[in-house]
Simulated assay, not measured.
Amino acid sequence: MSGISDVRLSLYAGELQRGQEDVVKTNAPRGLGLWGLYQHRRRTRQALLNLSADQLKDIGLSYEQARQEGLKPFWRE
């Protein structure tokens, strides 16, 4: 048998979660400073507001969900 068994994966999952508690979960590129993160959020939220209905459907968001996320201030997670 090659690879990691399900038992090992479930054991490691708990360790990984404990190790990630202090890490901010974000899709921003690594290495950004605080202002870089803010700029990334502003840019991606603005892009979200500009998506068409078909594009929103493709990513599984409703118009209201996209609007709610897109209108959040850049300093909020």
Rank of each mutant, 00 (worst) to 15 (best):
D6V: 00
R8E: 15
M1C: 06
V23M: 04
M1T: 12
Y63K: 13
L61P: 01
A47K: 11
R43E: 13
W75Q: 12
R67Q: 08
S52Y: 01
Q55W: 03
G33C: 05
P73I: 11
L9W: 07
D58Q: 13
K25C: 10
D22C: 07
G70F: 03
A53M: 12
G60R: 02
P29G: 00
R76G: 03
K57D: 08
G36L: 01
R8N: 15
S62Q: 05
V24K: 09
V23P: 00
L71G: 01
M1P: 06
G3H: 13
L51D: 00
I59C: 08
E77Q: 10
W35Q: 12
G36E: 05
R30E: 02
T44V: 12
L32P: 02
K72N: 04
Q68A: 15
A53P: 06
A28C: 11
P73Y: 07
G19W: 04
G31I: 09
R45F: 04
G70A: 04
L51T: 00
Y12H: 10
D6F: 09
L37P: 00
G14K: 06
R43G: 05
L32M: 09
L48I: 02
G60V: 02
K57Q: 15
T44W: 00
G19C: 03
D58P: 01
G36C: 02
R8Y: 08
